[in-house]
Design a protein around this nucleic acid. Structure first.
Lengths: 109, 109
DNA sequence: GCAGATGTATAGACCATCTATGGATAGAAC
DNA sequence: GTTCTATCCATAGATGGTCTATACATCTGC
């Protein structure tokens, strides 16, 4: 029985930033988006998500704003900043490089 | 200046097991193999490598044996066990699944 | 004999993730 | 109108893998 893989360490920030390129979202919505986009493979727990959002706020890569949901509930909406967009590029290229390197190790007979 | 990516957390065990499929090796040699195979992108620090090898030993995925090097130095050679080979398959498929899932999140506009 | 590469190993710090909570509101069900 | 479920935010503590730093030993070349 294959253990549930939940998340790949070190990629959460990138996934959040990417998700926010589409539209500003609140935390819960971000978690849902990632889960759906990954076809239920990646599950972001709250205990991972909110600390991550705090980090991103501190770094200035996202900004937050309290608003009302369509269903009239209060929620904190996160928006990608210019710096965040730049950071996403950095993380994505590092990630790609890393994956390529791992692929090289894993492939050759 | 892109920060050095060193390693992707959670993949070290898989990389070690894969390296040992080619031939039994000692710790230092494993580190060199991974570095070379990845074209200097992945660097395995000793402080990561030896704890990882201890884990693999405990799990029974590798076994160790003291031998002499070609250059006549004492070294501890690690060999993949049958269980280790099986484990490698598991980790590799989980990894592939994870990467595919991340790719799905990262691609769509 | 000294430097540098080879080789093993551990202790402590660091940091991201997970588990486990706690609380609040809206809407639906009954 | 009370209960249940889904939505929504957030933190504390544990866990675990990786990194930094260090220690030690041998062999080769100069």
């Amino acid at each position: 029985m294959p253990k549930k893989p939940d998340l790949m360490p070190g990629t959460l920030d990138m996934l959040i930033l990417k998700t926010l390129t589409r539209a500003p979202q609140h935390g819960y919505g971000i978690a849902l988006s990632i889960r759906r986009a990954s076809e239920e493979v990646l599950t972001v727990e709250e205990g991972s998500l909110y600390p991550a959002l705090q980090r991103l706020l501190l770094q200035g890569w996202v900004k937050a704003e309290w608003k009302k949901t369509e269903t009239n509930r209060r929620a904190r909406y996160y928006t990608l900043t210019a710096a965040g967009r730049k950071q996403l590029g950095v993380e994505q290229s590092q990630f790609d490089q890393m994956i390529a390197a791992i692929g090289r190790v894993m492939q050759d007979a």
